[in-house]
Design a protein around this nucleic acid. Structure first.
Length: 138
RNA sequence: CCUAUCAGCCGGGUUAUCGUUUCCCGAUUUAUCGGGAGAAGGAAAGUCCGGACAGCAAAGAGCAACACACCGGUUAAUGGCCGGUCCCGUUUAUAGCGGGGAGACAGUGCCACAGAAAAUUACUGCCUUCUCCCUCUCCUUUGGAGAGGGUCGGGAAGUGAGGCUGAAAACGUGAGGUAAGAGCUCACGGGUUUUUGCAGUAAUGCAAUUACCGGGUAAACCUUGUGUGCUGUAAUGCCACGUAUAUCAGCGUUCCGGCUUGCCGGUAAAGGGCGGCUCGCCCGAUCACUGCACUGCAGUAACGUUGAAGGGUAGGCAGCAAGAUCGUAACAGUAAUGUUGCGGCAAGAUAAAUGAUGACCUUAUCUGAAUGUGGUGAGGUGGGGAGGGGAAACCCUCCUUCGCUGAAGCUACGGAGGGUAAACAGAAUCCGGCUUACAGGCUGAUAGAUUUU
RNA sequence: GGCCUCGUAGUACAAUGGAUAGUAUAAGGGCCUCCGAAGCCCCAGAUCCAGGUUCGAUUCCUGGCGAGGCCA
């Protein structure tokens, strides 16, 4: 992978999706699509601390040990952190707020390479969704 | 040096790039940047015990319920830990390790199948005797007496383990004894118990002595002793936002005194609380108005309370990181542990941080080049022996518990390089334990075996 | 994080510490039928795991594993 050294690849507290309320709304009234091994929930909001807020989760039914869940979530966060910059800039430009939630639905601990590729595809699809939304509601 | 057991400790390191979070300092564009310091475990796990802390009234008493149970010590406390003691198991070992320990003479229950019987009784059996029946003998005369017998019948008394089945059967063996038998008595042996002496704080041990030998089960009910009030940091307190100061049904109250005239005190009701029950106790007062009637009833309202059906929020701060604290030394103690001195401050997240990727090293294991070393070893040569040839020097053939040398191959050591693997597992209020999981490594103790000196 | 409840055939449930762990249904085979359904007969299949108490454990005790529920 090639990294532009001037750009900072951050993932701070403000960029995390932590509000219990918005997560509840995502699960009840949010849009979703699947791209194995991910299931992605997304929804545009009114206001937030940052234009793009993201959360990650792994079901405790599939992985009983906390060590495994933590490992998977760390891999997901890392892949997201290095690739989400385009989507973030676009949303900033369009002045919209998007909440995204990644759910890992695979059955075994993945390789980092797989997670990285799949996360890139998901982010491209989210950019497309954002453009369509922007055209529909200018 | 190897093996086994036990105890204690460690449980990857360095570095590059990109990041996360807490605190401190500095800058400014006031939400960013720069610098510095810190950031998972021995089990953070299971949530099995015990506490701190908080609320329930200030946290009571008895019963119930639950837990524990050899003895002593230790601690804030415990069911933990340490030391001792008895029994069982393991073991070469009464070294070590593991398991167990109140009461079955307080009472109740249960012990399937089998067996006579599963707890003190019956049945069967044995023995004595009476009666009955049969036979014989005698006296004698339709009867009586005596002896013997009876797989058969009936009555009375004695006896207690022979009746072998079962997981378990009334101390075991032998002898005496008796009508028959039995710890009934004796000898030897096993076990329980009383009292005394000695050792020990005690459990207990040793010795003597007394009485005795009546199953098991208390992880069946239970008895005795000891302990525990209950709920848990999503406790609890505060701030912000928001809804419904609302709806329905039931019950109760709207009393007295003081004065500073809107507060204080007292006493009640419904009801609630001390989470199970009882006792004993605690909490619980606001403002009246209308009608009939004459100090009571009805209605309205307010307040309290119980229940029902619903509505809203799910954000922040404290609790929350300095404590039964950690490290170290000395002293006391067999030890657990305690006391004192010195030094240190060491995670604080909340869809939940403490990481991701790469390189090198370390450890284990697999494969294994080159050079070298050892072993095996065809053959060569020397020595020795036997036979043959030759006049002799000597030559030829064969053999070898012998010496030296020794190609190729095989094998052992050796290890360049390469491959694979590196466990169990992630703080969530905090401590003390317990239990469970765990690749590999280090140290020590004990025992055994082997080798060398 | 804390507090509770429960593990029995594929599934839903029984079984006082006692003989070969039972019932229904599903699965398999057979009969019946032209074929199927229904019906009848037969057959296989289980106590979550490991220790302990007991003569004997689905049951009692201890420890693990798994599943489900509740909270401000």
């Amino acid at each position: 992978m090639e990294l532009e050294t001037r750009q900072r690849y951050t993932f701070t507290k403000e960029e995390k999706l932590k509000s219990r309320k918005t997560i509840e709304q995502l699960f009840t009234g949010g849009n979703s699509f699947s791209n194995f091994p991910f299931r992605v929930l997304w929804k545009f909001g009114e206001t937030a601390e940052a234009p793009l807020q993201t959360g990650f989760t792994v079901g405790s039914k599939r992985f009983k040990k906390a060590v495994d869940r933590n490992r998977i979530k760390r891999l997901m966060r890392e892949a997201y952190r290095l690739q989400k910059i385009d989507l973030q800039n676009q949303l900033k430009q369009q002045q919209k707020y998007l909440a995204v939630f990644f759910i890992y639905v695979g059955n075994e601990i993945p390789e980092y390479r797989l997670i990285f590729d799949k996360t890139g595809k998901v982010l491209k699809r989210l950019i497309k969704i954002s453009n369509e939304n922007s055209l529909a509601n200018p």
